[in-house]
């Protein structure tokens, strides 16, 4: 188990390296350090000296990938790429191009993102499993058919519609919640309510359908039939047996979407002015703040890899037949 973990972690290093190269390449194709400097310094009366000074201080004054003026390992080490990548691996994100400490900002903004993501995730799972259990019991009934149809319908609606309609109806027409904004503490509830509802609704269709398939597959298995034959009630069979055995795919699914939760939803956050990591990322892209984008990409990939590993572990934990390390 431990060796497996270590091996997987070692594997992740080249992946993170590759991710870094991709972001680096894409970003510096778009921007030269000169342009970044001007963007950060403002447009009025900026002299070449000021640009040079900014570049020197941020370490953008050396070549990007290969320093031919240096010697030995310096050729690789005295470059923008090396200087900015090496730091990331020690989780030292450094300063953003606008001069703020990135690590601090990320810690600050994690809270609001999670404040939306966690309630949304929990409600979504509870609601979707309940509905799915319900309709899989009533398999083939009119309710089942209608639910499936409604689910496909919900899946076919763009999430933008949910957000816009939600804002219009709940905030403007019915005046039940604020249009957008955020607050700390208990006051957060009224700001979080609408985004959570919207997120749950937007993913409800796909989730219910998927859980329903999982339950139905489980339902068709022999042990369930045996249980039924023993005269156990629908509810007992469903809750005791089906739900428990269906936990594994559900768990996997949750692990896979975890990094997404952490990074926040770009669209929801920017529509509702939630100061989370999603809106941080969008801002960084719009301001061409390379250092911040870099850090977010790095974190995102890391979480993805961790998610993969967790999936494997959860499989092994839930199903003793699977032994790790024998992939």
């Amino acid at each position: 188990m431990i060796t497996y973990l270590i091996r997987r972690l070692v594997y992740s290093v080249p992946i993170l390296f590759g991710v870094n190269i991709i972001t680096f390449a894409l970003f510096f194709l778009v921007n030269s350090p000169d342009q970044m400097a001007r963007k950060q310094l403002g447009e009025h009366r900026v002299t070449m000296d000021a640009v040079e000074k900014w570049k020197t201080e941020r370490g953008y004054n050396v070549p990007l990938l290969w320093n031919s003026t240096s010697t030995g390992t310096g050729r690789v080490r005295d470059t923008v790429f090396y200087a900015t990548s090496a730091r990331l691996f020690s989780f030292n994100f450094g300063q953003s191009d606008s001069g703020r400490d990135i690590g601090y900002d990320i810690r600050e903004r994690m809270g609001p993102s999670l404040a939306i993501a966690i309630p949304a995730l929990i409600i979504q799972i509870l609601l979707a499993t309940t509905l799915a259990l319900f309709v899989s019991v009533l398999r083939g009934s009119r309710l089942d058919r209608w639910t499936t149809t409604v689910c496909v319908g919900l899946m076919s609606v763009s999430s933008l519609f949910f957000i816009m309609a939600g804002q219009y109806v709940m905030a403007k027409l019915l005046r039940l919640v604020p249009i957008s904004g955020y607050a700390d503490g208990w006051a957060m509830a009224k700001f979080v309510l609408l985004p959570v509802i919207v997120q749950v609704l937007a993913s409800l269709g796909a989730n219910v359908r998927w859980y329903r398939t999982v339950f139905l597959e489980e339902n068709a298995k022999d042990y369930v039939r045996t249980a039924r034959a023993k005269g156990l009630s629908d509810a007992t069979v469903m809750l005791r047996h089906v739900l428990r055995n269906a936990l594994l795919p559900l768990l996997t699914n949750i692990v896979v979407i975890l990094p997404g939760l952490f990074l926040g939803s770009l669209i929801t956050e920017s529509f509702f002015a939630i100061p989370g990591l999603g809106s941080y990322t969008i801002e960084a892209i719009q301001n061409q703040d390379f250092a911040a984008v870099r850090a977010m990409v790095f974190l995102g990939s890391l979480l993805y890899i961790v998610g993969l590993i967790l999936t494997d572990i959860s499989y092994a934990w839930a199903d003793p037949r699977i032994r790790l390390g024998k992939a």
Binding site: L41, G42, H44, R45, V46, T47, D49, A50
Partner: peptide
């Protein structure tokens, strides 16, 4: 100041 980037310093 060498670490403060005043946009008008040059001017």
């Amino acid at each position: 100041h060498p670490h403060l980037h005043s946009p008008v310093a040059g001017f």
